[in-house]
Write a protein that binds this DNA or RNA. Sequence first.
DNA 1: ACAGACATTAACGTTGACGTAAACGTAAAA
DNA 2: TTTTACGTTTACGTCAACGTTAATGTCTGT
Lengths: 148, 148
Amino acid sequence: MYQIEEVAKKTNLTKRALRYYEELGLVSPSGRTESGYRLYTDEDVTHILHVKNTRDLLGASLQEIKEIMDLGKRYELLKQDYFSDKHANDQHVGEKLRLLTELEVTLRAQRDVLQEKLNKLTEMLQGYDEKLTRITNKKRELEKESKE
Amino acid sequence: MYQIEEVAKKTNLTKRALRYYEELGLVSPSGRTESGYRLYTDEDVTHILHVKNTRDLLGASLQEIKEIMDLGKRYELLKQDYFSDKHANDQHVGEKLRLLTELEVTLRAQRDVLQEKLNKLTEMLQGYDEKLTRITNKKRELEKESKE
DNA sequence: ACAGACATTAACGTTGACGTAAACGTAAAA
DNA sequence: TTTTACGTTTACGTCAACGTTAATGTCTGT
């Protein structure tokens, strides 16, 4: 169990940001000390890093991230439901299918955005590499020239 | 030569954004009409798209992008210099080498950031794919179950 | 026991990246 | 020719994502 400062260092976020994320309902420390200090588990930290990655890499707003995550929670809820005896009911099975489909659609959309970004990133990387080799060549030229 | 509205559509940016980028010194239309309308060339559009990609994919601020681009301009200036007769001067060659090295270092840093992002994106993509297959499986299960 | 480094909440401030409205000129079409 | 639909600059508004400050409580070493 870590205190906020420790987590800030681990995640490279500020304490303010961590509290802000919590305020938005994005992350919640698993516990508090008697006196009210936030206590984070390793799992919490992993979760925070995932949020950060989603923000940085997907470029998603914190609101969007929250929406995705809320959907994830519905998924977890669904999973629990799956093992309850209620699922004998046919109507309930239909409801679960509906939710699963919705989740699938959303995740696939997210995935496609990621894929698109990955493609463009690869292009950009190639561009950089070409520029870099051109520079390296030019440097060689100049060095040769200066020796003559 | 396109007017601003056309460019806005091509780049999927707003007119306001285009003017704002110009204000920051990020992009400049190659010309103006007699009456002061902005005129963009295809090259300008390509440039704007590059800026947009850098913003979206690298997640860089417009200021950072400007700094990168200013370095690019120094590179172009250097290239012109390269063909001037001044480069007979040894000292001048040294200066060029210094600048080229600086440019190389900066670009390589940028490239590494890109590479890092690409790696993380790939990880995330895998995570999404795993989740999606799990969902697909669960859906199959449920569909089977509802048929019995 | 007390200084100093941590924590808390509450509230106002800041910054980047535009949006929006006003007041106006221009170009194309009816 | 007079709408209609573009363009211009200027300037204030907005919103997300925190930063910062204030006022206060808590833990830790000496």
